[in-house]
Amino acid sequence: MTQTERLPRIGVLANADSWYFHDLERAGRGLASVERLEFSALQSRIGGRESISADSVLSDRFDAVIVRTMPPGSLEQVVFRMDALAALERQGVLIVNRPKSMEMAIDKYLSLSRLAEAGFRVPETHVCQTWQDAMAAFEQLGPSVVVKPIFGGEGRGILRVDDADLAHRVFKTLQQLGQVIYLQKFISHPGANATPEPIPGEVAEVALRAVETLDLTIAGLDFLPDGQGGWYLLE
């Protein structure tokens, strides 16, 4: 590398203990300068050209910013983060995944609706706003359902419910907190296997089509076997 050349500068929005940041940092050694950024540090200064920063101005500091997931936050916080990344993209910084695509990816209802509309096989799912409607859905989808937050990732806030009394308490609490109630029919499966294995060809093909449907560059998809040689795409 000559004195006039420099390594690409890549920012990664991630938590301090993020495994994927450390893996990207390892993979980028000698190829790129990889630095972790905090979502909570994102801020904007408007007056003339808008300045998006996280400790320092991002458009002056990075060639690209990688966004794999969205940490928990209020609706206002999530919307601001997406808007700030969109402003940074308009200033010429490559954002992966693009903010418009991330808006769909982090919204379980919107992404599942789009996938089902495109013909992907997804679990039967009910999304509602009152505990009464949720209980009716529980009776229909039961005897076991999985309750998930619409915004969230990495398994946070997921609960399996297979008891009517527990369902009643959970759904009432979610309504009192002003949360949308998202429940999926539980799909029986043989359990988890932590041993890395090759991805079956048919799953890889479905995964690539799903990524294209959601207009994503980087994605993590959850599949479950149906016990009959087929697969469900969970999210």
Rank of each mutant, 00 (worst) to 15 (best):
R26F: 13
V96F: 01
R98F: 00
R90G: 09
L85I: 03
A27L: 15
I46L: 14
V96A: 11
L75Y: 09
D63C: 08
V78K: 12
P71Q: 03
M82N: 10
P71L: 01
I66W: 11
R61Y: 01
E76S: 12
L94H: 09
S44W: 01
Q43M: 10
V65E: 09
L75N: 10
D60G: 09
M70N: 03
A87Y: 00
A64E: 13
A41S: 13
D55H: 09
L37E: 03
P71C: 04
A87D: 10
F80W: 04
S56V: 10
D55R: 14
F80S: 14
I66M: 10
M82E: 11
L31Q: 15
P72L: 05
S44E: 15
Q43W: 00
A54L: 07
D63F: 02
E38S: 15
M70T: 11
R61H: 11
I52K: 05
E50P: 15
S40E: 13
L94N: 06
Q43K: 14
R81H: 12
G47E: 14
L58Y: 06
V93K: 06
R36M: 02
G28A: 02
S59W: 02
I52N: 06
E38Y: 05
F62C: 07
V57F: 07
R49F: 07
A84N: 01
R49L: 13
I46A: 15
N97C: 06
A54Q: 04
L94D: 07
S44K: 12
F39V: 05
R45H: 14
A64H: 05
P72F: 06
L37G: 06
E76Q: 12
V65L: 13
R68W: 00
P71S: 00
Q43E: 15
L75P: 07
L58D: 04
L88D: 04
V93E: 01
L37D: 07
G28T: 06
A87P: 00
E35G: 01
D55T: 09
R61N: 11
L85R: 05
R49D: 13
P72G: 10
L88G: 01
R68T: 08
G92D: 04
L88C: 04
F80H: 10
R61M: 06
G30N: 08
A41C: 01
L85D: 04
L75D: 13
Q77D: 08
L75I: 11
S51Q: 15
I46M: 10
I46F: 13
R36S: 03
I66T: 05
E89S: 15
L42K: 02
G28V: 05
